[in-house]
Amino acid sequence: MAIEVRIPTILRTYTGGERAVEAKGDTVAELIDDLESRHDGIQERLLENGEARRFVNIYVNDEDIRFTGGLQTALSDGDTVVILPAVAGGAR
C-alpha cells in the first residue's frame, strides 16, 4: 500500500532533496515509522512525546490529523499526506 508523502523544503535533507516520497502504513504513526526506516532522523523532527511537534502540521487528504484522531488517523491506498511547518501565512 503506497501513500504519497509531501515533504517540506526544510526536511528534504532527510529525503535526498525529494519533494515527495512513498511510504506505507495503516495509520499515520505506522507511516512515520516506515519513513524513519528509510530516512533516518526524520521522525525526531516530526514528533515529540508521541505527538506532532507544535510547529509541524500533518494533513491526510488535506485534513489536519489533530482533528481526525492524531497519529492514529487511518490511511488507505491512494491517500495523500502533506507535512508543513506552521507559519503565519499570508495577508492579515
Binding site: R53, F55, V87, G89
Partner: peptide
C-alpha cells in the same frame, strides 16, 4: 512561504 531556516521558527 514555508521557507523557514529551522522548524523552531514556526508560528
Amino acid at each position: 512561504v514555508y521557507g523557514l531556516r529551522n522548524l523552531d521558527e514556526g508560528f
